[in-house]
């Protein structure tokens, strides 16, 4: 059964080894090797990605985060070091990269430019078909992928080039989801989307992880989104990992973030300002609801349960 093999099930989650879905061991990658502009995009990175969690990677432009995540399915090969998926070095000769790519689904930045097939349906089916699944199973996968991405079934027979930008993005995400990857890697999945669409896609990723235990790695420039949806945050600065912790710990360390060319969410800054005024609700405030709840608790007010 291909499906069982390609998914993290609770049964095979035993022992320490299985705590991590992916691992970078002393990984270095150099762009423009040997010329004047030689740059270490990724510099001696050691990082473990926890199974079943949403890990956010943040960093300024050029900090190496996109390069790093493209190594997770072997799209970019490091100059030195090892990349492990399920404790298996994906660069070793015995490992078939094709199999790794069924396991690790990568949604690149602006994936709407990667559609190529005649119809949306065949585009989404491309991955599952390569996995050698039955036609029946492919059909089911196409539908579940489309459903996840919020893509109307009536669009499946259309040419991808007749879709709007937002629909193309959904079709591209459907294609990766149809492979039911064990590790889902997304580079700026919500870039260019309006706030409601951002919430929809990020919320779906969170729900999907909850339902299936899929591990997720995602890159974003929005500190607010990362604070809200991630379980772990990895901070990159000039090719190196400088923090790897929970959102409150990371967003509570503003100095480190600023020196990495990043920012804290607006609400965290409000917490700093409150602290200056003698209203101390801590510096590890990273979502608006949490800030409101802390204020209400401290001053005996009744917090509103609503969430947006």
């Amino acid at each position: 059964m291909v499906r069982a093999e390609g998914r993290a099930t609770p049964e095979n989650k035993n022992g320490n080894e299985n705590e991590y879905i992916a691992e970078f061991r002393d990984v270095t990658f150099v762009y423009n090797k040997g010329v004047t502009y030689e740059t270490k995009a990724v510099d001696s990175v050691n990082l473990k990605i926890r199974r079943g969690l949403i890990t956010g990677i943040i960093g300024a432009t050029g900090s190496g985060k996109s390069t790093l995540i493209q190594m997770l399915n072997g799209l970019i090969k490091p100059d030195s070091g090892e990349v492990l998926i399920d404790s298996e070095n994906i660069l070793s000769k015995d490992v078939k990269l094709k199999k790794i790519r069924f396991k690790v689904g990568l949604v690149m930045q602006y994936p709407e430019y990667q559609l190529f097939d005649e119809t949306v349906e065949s585009d989404i089916a491309f991955g599952p078909r390569n996995m050698g699944l039955s036609e029946e199973e492919i059909k089911r996968r196409v539908e579940s992928g489309a459903r996840f991405a919020g893509l109307d079934f009536s669009l499946l027979k259309k040419s991808p080039f007749d879709l709007s930008g937002g629909q193309k993005r959904r079709a591209a995400i459907a294609g990766v989801m149809a492979m039911e990857p064990e590790l889902l890697v997304l580079d700026e999945p919500a870039a260019g989307l309006d706030p409601a669409a951002r919430r929809e896609i990020l919320g779906k990723i969170r729900d999907y992880r909850k339902e299936r235990g899929t591990s997720v790695v995602m890159v974003s420039h929005s500190m607010e989104d990362m604070a809200r949806y991630c379980d772990r945050i990895v901070v990159m600065n000039q090719g190196r990992v400088c923090m790897d912790d929970t959102p409150p710990k990371v967003f509570g360390s503003s100095e480190e973030l600023f020196s990495a060319g990043l920012d804290v969410p607006g609400i965290t800054k409000v917490a700093y300002e409150l602290q200056k005024l003698g209203i101390d609700i801590g510096r590890d405030i990273y979502t608006v609801k949490y800030a409101a709840d802390m204020l209400c608790e401290k001053y005996g007010l009744k917090a509103s349960a609503e969430n947006f």
């Binding site: 960093g59 300024a60 432009t61 870039a191 260019g192 420039h221 500190m223 060319g261 990043l262 920012d263």
Partner: peptide
């Protein structure tokens, strides 16, 4: 839309 916090 495509910039990091400092760039923005």
């Amino acid at each position: 839309a495509m910039l990091d916090p400092i760039g923005r």
